[in-house]
Write a protein that binds this DNA or RNA. Structure first.
Lengths: 150, 150
DNA sequence: TTTTCTGCAAACGATTTGCATACAC
DNA sequence: GTGTATGCAAATCGTTTGCAGAAAA
């Protein structure tokens, strides 16, 4: 449950697909492990790398993010702010991702867990024949803090 | 319920904000009225215009789409295919939008109506203090047709 | 008239790609 | 060694913007 991916998981998954374990890929993953619950963009990652005085080209960051997503280690998501964001995936494939509460005033993204949609998925399959593999839910509104400011 | 926006709605909403009624804006809206249930991108609209031998600059299409969204006539959405898509909004502001079933094989987007999330929104407010204004739900999976092909 | 619009082309920001070199295996 | 990865810069793609002329109000 609280588990997350390790460097060994990365090494194993890379080997399975004849990809190589490189310091760049390790470092990118490490950044996500060091920032649990954060939704980082490629630029964010690149900035953190710069802070750490690690020199990895932005193109390599993009390529690593895509690869890590393909390997199922990262999860790619869009919050409508113009860039793709990533976070470490849940290690248990049977668990769905949490939902996101996006504040339309300050842009903050909170998280919310709920399993209400499991039933809905079965309903959809029955009614439409569509096989649901995953879902993504975003709630738009105003967060507690922004409400207080008004 | 089954109602949709008319050119008079457009004229009225434009006047309220001291914007002008132009043939370009009318034509862009008309395209959406002629394609109910479609999720059109700026390029899509521009292509349809070209088919109809109507010459409207792409920049104007973008500006019209943004304005129509601000007026509440169109609804902007992202399906992760790299561009924003739009469809005519529901005219009844108390009704939430339908959900989308996105096929990860062929990219087709189906629709699905359900009010299950109304309760969930109240739940979120209680637990987190977040005031939910709207939600957006996407289900990813494989559509009936793509399943049949396998 | 006055103000807002349009069209064009240039600018933009996020992301991708071609290619020569460097590195993991 | 061989094949994959990297870094860089250039290319790309959707979208936005500045500006001069055109058209609503």
């Amino acid at each position: 449950m609280g588990q997350t991916f390790t460097m060994d998981d990365l090494r194993r998954k890379l080997q399975e697909r004849q990809h190589k374990m490189t310091p760049q890929r390790q470092t990118v993953l490490q950044i996500f492990l060091d920032h649990p619950g954060k939704h980082l963009s490629a630029e964010d990652v690149h900035d953190i790398l710069r802070e750490r005085k690690v020199d990895i080209g932005l193109a390599t960051v993009y390529r690593s993010l895509e690869l890590l997503s393909e390997l199922g280690i990262l999860q790619k998501m869009e919050f409508g702010d113009g860039c793709s964001r990533y976070e470490v995936n849940t290690i248990d494939p049977t668990r769905h991702h949490h939902h996101h509460l996006i504040c339309t005033q300050c842009g903050k993204v909170e998280e919310f867990d709920d399993d209400l949609l499991e039933n809905l998925e079965q309903d959809i399959s029955k009614k439409t024949g569509f096989r649901v593999v995953d879902h993504q839910v975003k709630f738009f509104g105003v967060c507690k803090e922004c409400q207080a400011k008004q």
